[in-house]
Design a protein around this nucleic acid. Structure first.
Lengths: 246, 246
DNA sequence: GGACACAGCTGATCCAGATCAGGGAGCCCG
DNA sequence: CGGGCTCCCTGATCTGGATCAGCTGTGTCC
């Protein structure tokens, strides 16, 4: 059934003493040295929410911030709209990844978040979590880690890259992130349109199409509508190297 | 003497119970409710280092990370070099701003940091600070705040903007950051070359020159080598609006 | 003072990717 | 089943900013 699994990645259920295995917080959990009471504290503040339907907003720019959330299933897109009404996609969030960290400093969400397909979340009250983090150094570390990681991620796309480099980095990044959560890395289904990818990579959707075609002609990928198969990883990784800094 | 102050911004000295007034950590200090012992804890881990000479590296990509630092005086540039040897500037840090937060997640600095002019720093051991943060919720909050703020900053430059928008945003941002620390906002001296500005904004240095000239012709700024005077703030702010999201 | 290096400016040309235009394929709904 | 979506693809043209080339002004070192 690994084919089916690759097509519809969803985090497995956690239980009272274990996080969903894909979750970015599982690392905090895996650290030994906490008694069950503390783990229960951490679990108590998790609230499973959703499903949100495709196109539904999880939050909007300016909404009061009080919770961060881990994606359990589905894909979330965050974006802002500029004064000319053009959409700038800030990120895509796959199962196991954390949304909302950039909202801490302003106490309001600085962007909109929308479900690309049916989305379920684990929501954590941020203030409760921060309070708990003062008693659980491992949790505090994990929060620092996640925040710092997001700075790095945001910095990557700010660079000066060609369309080929950007698209390759996009594919390799998606692939790596699926792989890290245990999903098939070389075959997956994109949940977003070419326009969304373009708005994320700062390219026109036509350019995204053309680069996909070029990659296919080179034998580096098979692209059929949203179905992607990576057939020439090394070449793509070489292109992506500058962007991803690997 | 405010003219002289504008030309050479430097943070005032702190003392045993007070941070330098420009420092990003002063907020944690201003919060009431801590006894002097705790404040002393915080001060004890501050190490004044420098001065670093112009062109000297504060750290290099790959160096082990153990401390974050607040700029006390001077300007710091962070940058990476791509596979073709081209420099990508990631940021400029003015007095009061914090360097090194993006290193937390990897335990190594992900970029180089170099002094643009004589630089002095307040260096804080990060592990000690994190440990202290478990006992000082205000400090923990401040760290979360700073990290989250950096995510937002990094996101800004990733957008899709014209050369005019980028340069205007650069000038307004520098101006606002000086203003926030109590320095003259409409008249300042850039410490970096046109090439550095271009590498930061993802523009050729020639383009930066041409945009400066255009701004001058429009009467929005007086530019003479590195000396800048903003004479048409509203127009520049309008241009910068999309980038800075204000 | 003279020679050299480097920062900055400006003009001419080029090009990657945007924009414009049109066409086809899958999909939902009456 | 047909009509009208939206998404995606592809070709033609345009353009903002890069690149190339050359010049000027300002240190700085001998």
């Amino acid at each position: 059934m690994s084919g089916a699994r690759a097509r519809d990645p969803i985090a497995d259920d956690g239980d009272a003493y274990k996080f969903c295995s894909t979750c970015a917080f599982s690392a905090a959990c895996l650290q030994s040295g906490y008694d069950k009471t503390q783990l229960r504290d951490l679990h108590v503040l998790v609230e499973h929410v959703g499903p949100f339907a495709e196109g539904e907003h999880l939050f909007r720019e300016g909404d009061a911030f009080n919770a961060i959330a881990a994606v359990r299933g589905g894909t979330v897109k965050t974006y802002v709209t500029d004064t000319e009404g053009r959409e700038q996609v800030q990120g895509f969030y796959l199962p196991g990844e954390i949304i909302g960290l950039s909202a801490i400093s302003q106490a309001r969400y600085p962007c909109n978040a929308i479900a690309m397909d049916p989305v379920t979340l684990c929501r954590f009250s941020f203030s409760t979590m921060a309070e708990l983090a003062t008693r659980m150094p491992g949790l505090q570390q994990q929060l620092f880690f996640l925040l710092s990681q997001d700075i790095g991620k945001a910095t990557l796309l700010a660079g000066n890259y060609t369309a080929d480099e950007r698209v390759a980095a996009f594919l390799i990044s998606i692939s790596q992130r699926y792989a890290a959560r245990g999903f098939a890395p070389d075959r997956f289904r994109l949940t977003m349109t070419r326009t969304d990818i373009g708005n994320y990579l700062r390219l026109a959707s036509e350019t995204v199409s053309r680069v996909f075609r070029r990659f296919q002609d080179e034998g580096w990928a098979r692209v059929e509508r949203r179905e992607i198969e990576l057939t020439g990883r090394p070449a793509l990784e070489l292109l992506a190297r500058n962007v991803l800094r690997t």
